[in-house]
Nucleic acid binder design. Structure first.
Lengths: 247, 247
DNA sequence: TCCTGCTTTATTATCGACAAAATTTAAAAA
DNA sequence: TTTTTAAATTTTGTCGATAATAAAGCAGGA
């Protein structure tokens, strides 16, 4: 709790600043946690490119945080497999390896399908309503994306994440959802790196709509097939680009 | 590399002590990594019971490691969900919650089935040979377990882990295997805590044999059903015990 | 002259001791 | 009994020292 004691008139007031923060450091949050979040988004968003060496001295000046919290954050990130560390050789942003992505995408697809099946089996009315809601947003964002010229807006990324998250939200296992989210974040780094040139050739709006329709129809296997295809197209676009720099 | 230069006769020898260690610190390994491993096994094995507060001062004297590496280890363990940390309130061994276990077991079963399907589809001759080998060991350990009176020997735990790991080894995704291993370790803590009184009522040898036969027959669905049942029996034994302390 | 291998140097990562912030406990006052 | 204040413990962060690794320099041999 961030408190302050203020003497006014003859009275001593205690003021609680919780939630009044400008949204930068966060209250009651450890510097290590702040460093973790900041580094995490920077790595996923590509601000810290794959393979970059993460020297404590540099990070110290960049983030304005001491070495100890930074080390703790880097350790956690290495658990997430977003940074790699070896012996006494410091930390590095995990490299992007097409083989690794193939593996990762396979795992992600498998988990996504399983959560989808469970979610369709267990979901109630409130879940259905949420699916309808995110589908509505997704449709608008997909249309905006087709018109967009310069890259992919962050709002589309968020909508896409929320869309797929909503489909599986009712799966009933917090653990499966956590694993799914982790894999999603890991994949996002690969996607951000290169996919977006090929977006024009896909009809994302139709893909998303077909998925949400199958979900609302409680057609588990149909939804799984569509989602698998959806992921596969993204993965293929990435593979083409990394393996085929000539064409 | 832990090396030493030795002058003998007129010759200079360089001796490498790798692997000659007493098994305590390890060579080239960071103290943080050593602390992580030590704490991890202690938590999984129940040496540090659930809910125990992990005060740095105490750990410092117990493991003979300074505060900084310990903090880094604890951060990584909190990523693994083996310890929990909140704000500025230190670290605690993650509590055992029956609901949490139910969730965890569901996730584990789902991942195990998926890896099993993939493994059966992709496995080659060498994999089959490995399956035969671990099944042979497992049979002997199961028989020894039936005769054992005082708890479960560590060798059985290892054999059991190796048995199930071998079944899914050929699944083709390092990521799925990593997730599977993590979930397995998490569950082991619950199992160690309480299951073992009910072992007498189960025929583990038959269960394991049925699984390995289905796997070798490439009967993916059969193997999945058997494995699911296998896990469910363990989970049920645990739930009975925690929910039913009266009977 | 060029290459190979070792030694030296410098950079960097890791660790432990100290200090500051926060929380919990305890005690006192309303 | 409840609230408030103060003390003590604990957690967190900064800093400097140590140890390890990578790079540069140097000698010896081809």
């Amino acid at each position: 709790m961030r408190k302050a004691k203020v003497l006014a008139g003859n009275q001593l007031f205690e003021i609680d600043f919780s939630g009044a923060e400008g949204g930068r450091t966060g209250d009651g949050e450890t510097l290590a946690q702040a460093a973790y979040r900041a580094l995490r988004v920077d790595i996923i968003r590509g601000v810290r490119p794959p393979g970059e060496r993460l020297r404590i001295e540099k990070l110290k000046t960049i983030y304005g945080i001491g070495p100890t919290p930074l080390r703790e954050a880097l350790q956690k990130l290495s658990s997430d497999r977003l940074v790699v560390t070896e012996g006494n050789r410091g930390f590095t942003v995990a490299p992007l390896d097409p083989t690794e992505f193939h593996d990762l995408n396979m795992a992600r697809t498998a988990v996504e399908k399983e959560t989808l099946r469970l979610s369709i089996a267990n979901g109630g009315n409130d879940w259905e309503a949420k699916v309808v809601a995110v589908s509505y947003i997704m449709k608008k964002e997909d249309q905006a994306l087709m018109a967009a010229r310069d890259g992919v807006p962050d709002s589309w990324e968020q909508a896409n994440a929320a869309f797929h998250a909503a489909m599986v939200a009712a799966c009933g296992s917090r653990w499966l959802l956590k694993i799914r989210t982790d894999l999603h974040d890991l994949c996002e780094r690969y996607r951000r790196a290169s996919v977006y040139q090929k977006l024009g050739t896909r009809d994302l709006q139709s893909e998303h709509q077909a998925i949400s329709e199958a979900v609302l129809d409680r057609d588990a296997e149909g939804a799984c097939v569509l989602t698998e295809q959806h992921f596969k197209l993204t993965a293929a676009a990435l593979s083409d680009q990394t393996a085929d720099p000539a064409s």
